[in-house]
């Protein structure tokens, strides 16, 4: 495709401006997290902390038991991640590599739950967990991940499995392999990147979840980072240096995970959108 120099230049300029606007909130976050209050409030705003107040992080993170919040979040996030990867990859196998009557109908019915607003199920689910005595525990946040891991993830993996030639399975059947062996030895190794995508999405979704912990957790010592940060904000309204330090600390793990798995993220989103 031929693109004129002028148009390329205009597009380039627009991209730089837009990226600038997307990155400024990050810079604002970082610079505020490293300044003392008096420099934060100078007008016009300054961008380079003088001096760098690394102690903001220490002060912010020790004011509330952020180490406990971090531990809680880690327990939830990894328990959810394991359940999601395990059961969604097995279910996706059942929905794509095994032929059985009614398979596609069942899958279509399950897919409808993607359109269902969480608001519809949240009250009965809450009451159910409460009846079972699991209110104010991690179970309501973790257990559902072991039952399919979310239809979106099954959909994503199914999309990927469908691109693997069925001949592979056929050859294995001839050699006497069982379905489970085919899943373990053929499908899983071949769909490593799709599994990583699901793991990454699952990590971010539960790391970022706010409504779930808000509804199911009551005791401070069970709080997640998201809840803790919100609690911090309620207590320290104008302490922007500490608030920004705490926020930066919550954002950092996500950024690291994203940068490590960037390639997979982009692949995964593309995979989910293509069949729209």
């Amino acid at each position: 495709m031929r693109i004129s120099k002028l148009r390329l230049g205009a597009g380039y300029t627009a991209l730089i401006i837009i990226s600038g606007m997307f990155i400024i909130p990050f810079l604002w976050l970082i610079r505020s997290s490293l300044m003392d209050l008096s420099q934060i409030f100078t007008m016009p705003p300054e961008w380079i902390p003088r001096p760098f107040h690394w102690d903001n992080f220490q002060r912010a993170l020790t004011f509330l038991p952020f180490d406990t919040f971090f531990r809680n979040t880690t327990i939830i996030v990894f328990s959810v991640l394991i359940g999601t990867v395990l059961t969604s990859s097995i279910a996706a196998f059942g929905f794509s590599r095994i032929e059985w009557r009614g398979r596609d109908t069942v899958f279509a019915i399950l897919m409808t739950s993607m359109m269902l607003p969480a608001a519809v199920t949240i009250i009965p689910s809450f009451l159910g967990w409460q009846k079972l005595g699991f209110y104010d525990s991690f179970y309501p946040l973790i257990v559902p991940a072991y039952f399919g891991g979310g239809i979106f993830n099954i959909f994503l993996l199914r999309q990927f499995y469908l691109t693997i030639p069925l001949d592979f399975d056929e050859a294995a059947y001839v050699d006497g392999a069982t379905y489970f062996q085919i899943y373990m030895r053929i499908i899983l190794p071949l769909s490593r990147s799709a599994i990583i995508v699901v793991a990454l999405f699952s990590f971010l979704a539960s790391w970022n979840d706010f409504m779930g912990p808000l509804i199911y957790l009551k005791s401070d010592n069970l709080f997640t980072l998201a809840l803790g940060l919100q609690m911090f904000q309620g207590t320290y309204t104008a302490q922007w240096d500490l608030l920004m330090a705490a926020s930066a600390a919550v954002v950092l793990p996500c950024v690291i995970v994203f940068l490590l798995g960037q390639r997979y993220f982009l692949e995964g989103i593309t995979l989910s959108g293509l069949k729209g």
Partner: peptide, 11 residues
């Protein structure tokens, strides 16, 4: 452009 969409809602 993509990075902000992974930032937790609270942050």
């Amino acid at each position: 452009i993509y990075l902000p969409s992974i930032v937790p809602a609270v942050a």
